[in-house]
Design a protein around this nucleic acid. Sequence first.
DNA 1: TCTGGGGTCCTAGGACCC
DNA 2: TCTGGGGTCCTAGGACCC
Length: 427
Amino acid sequence: VPLFALVDCNNFYASCERLFRPELKGRPVVVLSNNDGCVIARSSEAKALGIPMGAPAFQWEREFRKSGVAVFSSNFQLYGDLSARIMTTLEDLAPSVEVYSIDEAFLDLSGVADPEGLCLAIRERVLRWVGIPVSIGIASTKTLAKLANRVAKKQPQHGGVFDLEGSQGAGADLAAAILSETEVGDVWGIGPRHAKRLWARGVRTALDFTRVPRAWVRREMSVVGLCTQLELSGVSCLALSRAPAPHKSLLCSRTFGRLVTEPAHLREAVSAYAVRVAEKLRREGAEASSVQVFIATPRHRENMAQHSGLATVALPAATAHTPSIIEAALRALEQCFRPGYEYQKAGVMLVGLTPTSGRQVSLLDLDPEERRRQRGLMSALDAVNRRFGCGTLRYAITAAPDRPWHMRQTRRSPRYTTNWDELPTVG
DNA sequence: TCTGGGGTCCTAGGACCC
DNA sequence: TCTGGGGTCCTAGGACCC
């Protein structure tokens, strides 16, 4: 019998910020998106103030001040490092771990004698070793484990761990009761669109959803919806995958600090994003076969001329060579740029990824000597930037003195754990 | 003035092939 | 009166996730 657990960090980013600022305990904390645009994480105190997920920061400034909310720009280096520590701790204690996101992991607990006891121990150890509180849901499918996790979070009497299977074979009744108390839109895999259509048909709860005819679900929600429906009924469709699948695409995109009209500024921004995404590509040990660029004007202003452009340029041969990728990105930008618009956002996506080793040799390949030279250059560049900090070696086009597209980030906390200059001091 | 960034999968339709 | 069947690949759009 399969058995899954979902470990989910409580208010992860907010908990990370609080870890090095113990005086914030009990105080509302929010973390803002890049560009300090909107709220992407809230402590429980901030949730209690009614600040919704995704709230535009500027609309809430007054409330932040009035209620003494501690506001942070996002600090993904810090979150990523703490996440890695948590995952390592899980690997130590659980038989099989799938890292699902920066703050979540599925565990395979099939055959474990006392799953609830194990999870209580895991929770305790992560709290003690890393300092981040987690909640754990246990059930026979991943989707039900997600549901059990919600219960663990919402009902503190369970001590942060909730087993939907129950202890004395009361599983089925317990599951039905929980399903009937869960709104259908709160089910993992059912988003706002499907939730709305289901409500229109009188399907309100997760339990209702399990009774919708399969043919309808298949037709209107594809096989993905069918899978969700089966999982809710206790039929496991989603297996645990231990090794992360290789990426199929990689993206670097940003909202600009200010609106941009100058093609020169767009070229700088797109080049900078191309550099970053190419670095990611090499870290993955992969090469890309084409480059996609998109640019867009703001979405939330109806009285402004809108344009969003997307163009793809194929690379002559799969590569991870930054200058080649910049060149392709700039050609794509040229294709989708339209003068006279105020752009707010741009992105560079690499697609058609293949592992660096074992790639197909193309007739269009550079001669092997040139390939070796390019790879050597990239390795040297990455090594220098790793050793002396990213941005030590830069491309001239990304280093213009005036960069109006640069993102705003006014309230970032120190990178306590990943940056020598920003270590916390004790004393 | 001010609303993030980074992914995945599925489906339908068109081009093209034999 | 009547105009096949089956496959692949690509793209765009939609939906979902964190």
